[in-house]
Design a protein around this nucleic acid. Structure first.
Length: 872
RNA sequence: GCGGGCAUGGCGGAACUGGUAGACGCAAGGGACUUAAAAUCCCUCGGCCUUAGGCUGUCCGGGUUCGAGUCCCGGUGCCCGCACCA
């Protein structure tokens, strides 16, 4: 009996409306069931949702729907990370206001997300640019200030001298401003910092507890925090060369064992000694300026060619008063890490070796592999960084580096220099305090007032929020808040005198560092209701891109600790489970006039050879590499178009199929069509059988011809459940395909009216199970099938079925039989057979006897429920 | 440059803690149904060799093991992050 094709355009809006009317995804904070908080990283409202969002939210929705079916009280909210530079760029380019641009984008994207049929609690929605939200963020800032978690210090920014504006690192291209093309300078500004380094050790230690995070993310965070144990050594500056007032040069090193391999000192361009020397040395001054023009990004600093400038100063080796080392200013030394000065040991560090070779400095090997010969061991082009034994190092010779480290630390610790030990053991972290000041309009105003008499005074909580003024313009570059005629002029809250409002706004990472807490009670007058935050947090499953592995996640971990200190909640780790999903990528197409969108071309596949032509002209088009979807490469596929032609279920299902969720997925037209075919196939097998099954009671067939169907149903139920717990969506999808392949013939029999009652009951059960299995991924289709089968209520409210262990258990097992590690046959035997029985049965097999051919069996390996291997 | 990751048929991938490599899907080829098309259904599908069968095969080179896609050492290629993009 032919049934009509499934029509998502009709079905999807219908079911979305039904869900809405029943408010089934609105979460009650008073619900007593066990909680489950699932959260996807909220989007930046850039304009329209892209396939990456579809993938991210499809995954989160599967988790949310699955947990809901498992009986949890699920919190699954959505909001907008709405402050940021793109809104200002749009304002400059299109003469729009950042606010209207942002809110219009939000409206578009909300509509798009709703068309996906996500089980979100929209009643908790907010945008970080809502006054209500950033008001609470300002309260937090004031609280943190009160708790000593915020302070001010000078820091460098990229300065575009032509546009007279601060540039983000991404706006600096090859050392020049992205708009003006002017050489970028560095400027020192007084800025606000969060004291994240107070928590360095705790942030490091607690990584151990995050066992539902990917190991790679924990490792990246560990390396980012970068704890090291080293020695802080004060080197004596040779008085003959040193400038007035400078007697020593302090250096931090993790390799004091290589002290006898030292051949130079290198300091940062901003080191006080360098600044002093530059005063009287124009060439050095110019060199330092050049270093500064590289910008503030670490990647740029590290990849430039290494240069140094001899200051003419010398230091004295701590173990040999006659040994003098030159002091260079070097462009690869960072003022932010350690003391801004290093000693170079060329034999043990590649960068130092390159530097030494470039400037003709001494290279003395001090560590060599243990089996090498000290007399002939040399370092020329490649540094040796491994373990070994000390050579050319006087009293350290013959020691292991670790022992040498301790010996140097002890000896230098005992030497008195300038009234203190010459060296001290020191634990150092790479992690730096978090600078949050931004010289931009579209962000959360920092709630501080600067008074000539009272200094920086926090805005009293009663006077919050500090609201962003709407009457600004972007006619001139720079921060419009600075130019605003009235906004910055206020009275000092402390003394009442004329004072100036802080015109910097907060880094947008601040906004995203606590939004997950705000969702737990989004309308509270305080940033949180601590009871609600403690109830819902930590987030049980957080899902987002790997690009946030370090900054966003680390800042959020810090923020949670800071909020704990300020009494807003009482946990320290915000995300119990973390999952980092891959990107959505797509082929690129290139014609004579540049990149071409997928919609403009036609692709043919003849005997596996693909070729593309232009739709309109028929011109041939080059099929390019597969890349991350981006506007510039024109390889973007708009989710709206896909949903319009195939429906949301197809888009969601395709995003979950094939590629493992943590890896990139390639968007292909063929893949979408395959997913759509499967949508139709499920509808067909259910709808065709429905007339025969709608009055039947579901029951497993424990034997007979329908037994295979019941076994497949319960086995799939078990396996898909396990896969979903581990977010193995692609595996669940494969198992569902397999399952449909298994049950289709029997369902076809039912449709033709050729089935007896036992078969019908089994098929009814198998169909219900199928619908429930697909419901988290394709909720609309599932709902339509559920209703077609005349099942009770909505599948969105149905409890996840339990599998029957009797139907899942197997009573025999087929062993692959290997001879000398190669599979030669199989042996099917009772699953509980003991080793001896298996051995006997294996040796009795014909092909085994053939292969052995009378030779002695050297070894017989039987791994229960795995394999048999005969070694001859 | 530093830190992290990945690599399996024509393609996306599966293979749980070292145990049958290629599940499932796509593409391709052949066939059935149809006036025709769409849709649907069936068969084949890593490579080589003469079918039963055998050899070979998981980026490259070594190693450990009865057994390696999986573990170890050394390479190559691609991707992500690098603190003011979000």
């Amino acid at each position: 009996m032919a049934v009509e094709r499934y029509n998502p355009r009709q079905s999807e809006p219908h079911w979305q409306k039904v869900w809405d009317e029943h408010k089934i995804y609105e979460t009650d904070n008073a619900d007593k069931r066990e909680k489950y908080y699932v959260l996807e990283m909220f989007p930046y409202p850039s304009g329209r949702i892209h396939m990456g969002h579809v993938r991210n939210y499809a995954m989160g929705d599967v988790v949310a729907r699955y947990r809901r079916a498992k009986g949890f009280n699920v919190l699954h909210p959505m909001g907008w990370d709405a402050f940021g530079m793109p809104a200002e760029n749009a304002a400059m380019q299109n003469k729009t206001h950042p606010k209207s641009w942002t809110y219009e984008n939000i409206d578009t994207m909300r509509r798009q997300l709703k068309s996906m049929g996500l089980s979100l609690d929209w009643s908790r929605e907010f945008a970080t640019c809502d006054v209500e939200y950033y008001h609470k963020q300002q309260q937090l800032f004031v609280d943190f200030l009160d708790k000593g978690l915020v302070y001010r210090k000078n820091a460098k920014v990229n300065w575009d001298p032509e546009d007279m504006t601060v540039l983000a690192n991404e706006q600096v291209i090859d050392g020049r401003g992205w708009r003006s093309g002017a050489l970028v300078e560095q400027r020192d500004l007084t800025q606000w910092f969060f004291n994240i380094t107070d928590y360095s050790q705790d942030l490091l230690d607690s990584l151990e507890t995050l066992d539902n995070w990917p190991d790679k993310v924990r490792l990246m965070q560990k390396n980012w925090i970068g704890k090291s144990e080293g020695l802080q050594i004060r080197w004596e500056l040779d008085a003959k060369t040193a400038p007035e007032g400078f007697t020593e040069l302090e250096v931090y090193t993790t390799r004091p064992d290589t002290l006898f391999g030292a051949s130079f000192m290198a300091i940062a361009a901003d080191h006080p000694l360098a600044l002093e020397a530059a005063k009287s040395n124009p060439e050095l001054h110019e060199f330092c300026e050049e270093c500064r023009r590289v910008g503030t990004s670490a990647a740029a600093l590290e990849t430039i060619e290494k240069h140094g400038f001899d200051t003419g100063f010398e230091v004295v080796h701590p173990f040999n008063k006659d040994w003098k080392l030159k002091v260079f200013v070097a462009n690869f030394v960072l003022m932010e890490y350690g003391t801004g000065a290093i000693f170079g040991c060329p034999s043990g560090d590649q960068r130092d070796l390159d530097f030494a070779n470039k400037y003709g400095l001494q290279v003395t090997p001090v560590v060599m592999p243990e089996d090498d010969d000290a007399a002939s061991f040399q370092i020329t082009e490649e540094a040796y960084t491994g373990d070994g034994i000390m050579i050319n190092s006087e009293f350290l010779n013959g020691m292991k580096p670790k022992e040498a480290f301790d010996t140097v630390a002890k000896k230098l610790g005992e030497i008195e220099f300038n009234g203190a030990p010459q060296a001290e053991l020191k634990t150092q972290f790479k992690l730096r305090d978090w600078g949050v000041s931004r010289q931009r309009y579209w962000g959360c105003p920092i709630p501080v007032i600067h008074c000539d008499d009272c200094g920086a005074v926090p805005v009293p909580k009663a006077d919050l929020p500090v609201i962003l003024p709407d009457d600004i313009n972007f006619d001139k570059p720079g921060n419009p808040l600075d130019r605003h005629p009235t906004w910055r002029h206020v009275a000092c809250p402390s003394c009442g005198k004329d004072a100036r409002r802080e015109t910097d706004t907060m880094d947008t990472f601040v906004d995203s560092s606590w939004y997950f807490a705000r969702f737990t009670d989004p309308n509270n007058d305080n940033p949180t209701d601590p009871d609600m935050a403690n109830h819902w947090l930590p987030v049980d499953q957080y899902i987002g891109g790997i690009e946030h592995a370090i900054l966003h996640l680390l800042y959020s971990r810090f923020f949670t600790r800071a909020m704990q200190k300020a009494g807003h909640l009482d946990i320290k780790e915000p995300f119990k489970g973390l999952f980092t999903q891959g990107m959505v990528v797509h082929e690129t197409y290139k014609g004579p006039n540049g990149w071409i969108t997928p919609a403009e071309i036609d692709i043919k596949d003849v005997d596996g050879v693909r070729s593309a032509t232009m739709n309109d002209t028929g011109e041939s088009v080059e099929i390019g590499s597969i890349e991350k979807m981006s506007k510039s490469k024109k390889n973007v596929v708009d989710p709206d178009d896909i949903i319009a032609s195939y429906g949301a279920d197809t888009a969601r299902f395709f995003m979950l199929s094939d590629s493992p969720p943590e890896r990139d997925v390639i968007w292909t037209e063929a893949g979408v069509e395959a997913a759509h075919k499967f949508v139709q196939r499920i509808w067909r097998i259910i709808a065709e059988a429905a007339p025969e099954l709608s009055d039947v009671k579901a029951a497993s067939a424990m034997d007979g011809e329908a037994n295979a169907v019941s076994k497949a149903a319960h086995k799939t139920l078990k396996l898909v459940g396990e896969d979903l717990e581990k977010l193995g969506f692609n595996k669940s999808v494969a198992r569902i395909y397999e399952y449909v392949n298994t049950i289709s013939p029997m369902l076809a029999k039912v449709s033709k009216g050729e089935a007896d009652d036992t078969v019908k009951s089994a098929c009814r059960e198998a169909s219900e199970i199928l619908i429930q299995l697909i419901a988290p991924m394709m909720p609309h289709l599932a709902e339509a099938c559920w209703s077609e089968l005349n099942c009770e209520g909505m599948v969105a409210n149905a409890a996840w079925p339990q599998f029957n262990p009797d139907l899942v258990a197997e009573n025999s097992f087929t062993y692959p039989v290997q001879i000398n590690g190669k599979k030669r046959g199989e042996l099917t035997i009772a699953v509980d057979a003991d080793k001896e029985t298996i051995e006997k049965a294996v040796l009795a097999l014909d092909f085994v006897a053939d292969k052995i051919n009378g030779q002695p069996v050297r070894k017989l390996i039987v791994v229960p429920k795995r394999i048999v291997n005969i070694v001859i």
